Simulated scan of single mutants.
Amino acid sequence: MQHPTVRFLREDMFASLHRWTGAAEPTGELPLDATVRALDDGGVDRGLICAWYGPAGPLISNDEVDACVRARPDRFRGVASVDIRYPVAAIGELRRAVQDLGFVALRIVPWLWGLPPNDRRYYPLFATCVELGIPFCTQVGHTGPLRTSETGRPIPYLDDVALEFPELVIVAGHIGYPWTNEMIALATKYPNVYIDTSAYAAHRYPPELVAYLREHGRAKVLFGTNYPMITPRRALERLGELGLDSETRAAFLGGNATRVFRI
C-alpha cells in the first residue's frame, strides 16, 4: 500500500487508474488518519507503506514514509525505494532506510524505469537486500498506467533474478496477469519467490491463482491492496467466495507476510 502524497495522486501517469476506479481529483494532502480509517474499515491490523522512486524523483520519499510509521508505529511498517541509476547512492539510501529507519523491504517498480528486474542496475541492490536480510518487492503483470507492460513479464526477467540470487526473497505484487501461470511457475520453482495480490479485489483473482492458493501455494501468496487504488474493505469484501479453509485464510491474510517480512 501507499499513503499517497498530493504529487503522487496528481501524477499524470495515473489518469487511466482514476478513469477505471472513478476516483475524484485530489484537492489536498490525504490525512494519515484517513488511511488508518481505511485499514480499520477493512479489518486490517497493519499495512506496509511503500516509498515510490522513479526517474523524475520520489513521488513518496523514504522520509515521508518514515514520518507515517513514526506517527503510527502500531499500524505501519515502511518499505524503501531508491534511485537505481546511481548504485552507490542507492545502496547507501537503502542501508539508511533499513538500519536507521527500520524499514522491512525494498520495492522497485520496473515499469517506472522502463527496465526489467534482470537489468544490471538492480543487481547491487539485490546483493544488499540479501546482506540486510530483507525482501525485494516488485511488480509483475500488465501496467494500469499507460506505460509498457513488458517489464512485468515474470519469465524471463524475474526468472533470471531468482536463478542468479537464490538467497534473495522476492515478493512479486499484482499477481502477474496476463502471465499469472508464469508467476505461479516461478513461485513453485523457487523457495524464496512469493506472490502478492495487491491491485486486485478478491473476486477478480484469476482462477489459476485461486487454485494455487487453495492447494500447494498456501504458504506462497500474500494479501495486498495497492491502497489507495483499492481499499482494504473492497479488496476483501468477496473473500468468502474463494473457498479457503481457515488455515489457508489465516496464512494468506497475515501469517505469510509476518514470516516473509519478519514482522
Rank of each mutant, 00 (worst) to 15 (best):
I91V: 15
L94S: 08
E93N: 13
A97V: 01
I108G: 07
P117A: 08
P117L: 15
V104G: 00
L112G: 14
G92H: 13
V98R: 01
L101V: 02
L112A: 14
W113R: 08
V104I: 07
A105L: 00
N118M: 04
W111S: 15
A89H: 12
A90V: 08
R95Q: 11
L112D: 07
V109P: 11
D100M: 01
P87A: 14
P116S: 09
G92V: 07
Y86V: 11
F103W: 06
V88I: 14
L106Y: 01
R85Y: 15
Y86D: 15
G102N: 04
R96Y: 06
G92C: 05
R96I: 04
R85F: 14
I108S: 09
V98Q: 00
G102V: 05
P87Q: 05
L101Y: 05
L101G: 01
P110C: 12
Q99R: 15
V109F: 05
W113L: 08
I91G: 09
V98I: 12
L94M: 07
A90P: 09
R96L: 07
G114L: 10
G92K: 13
I108H: 11
L101P: 02
E93S: 12
L106P: 04
R96M: 02
E93W: 04
A89V: 13
P110I: 14
N118H: 13
L101C: 01
L101H: 04
D100T: 08
V109L: 15
F103K: 12
L115Q: 07
Y86K: 12
A90C: 06
R95W: 08
G102W: 02
Q99V: 11
A105E: 00
G92R: 14
V88N: 04
P117E: 09
V98G: 03
P87R: 03
L101T: 00
V88F: 09
N118V: 05
G92N: 11
Y86L: 11
R96Q: 09
D100I: 02
L101W: 02
I91K: 14
V109T: 15
P110V: 09
G114P: 10
Y86P: 02
L115H: 05
V109M: 13
L106G: 02
G114Y: 08
V104F: 00
A90G: 10
R95L: 05
P116G: 02
G102R: 06
V104P: 00
R95V: 15
I91M: 13
A105H: 00
R107T: 08
R107N: 06
R95K: 13
F103E: 07
F103I: 11
Q99Y: 01
P116K: 10
I91Q: 13
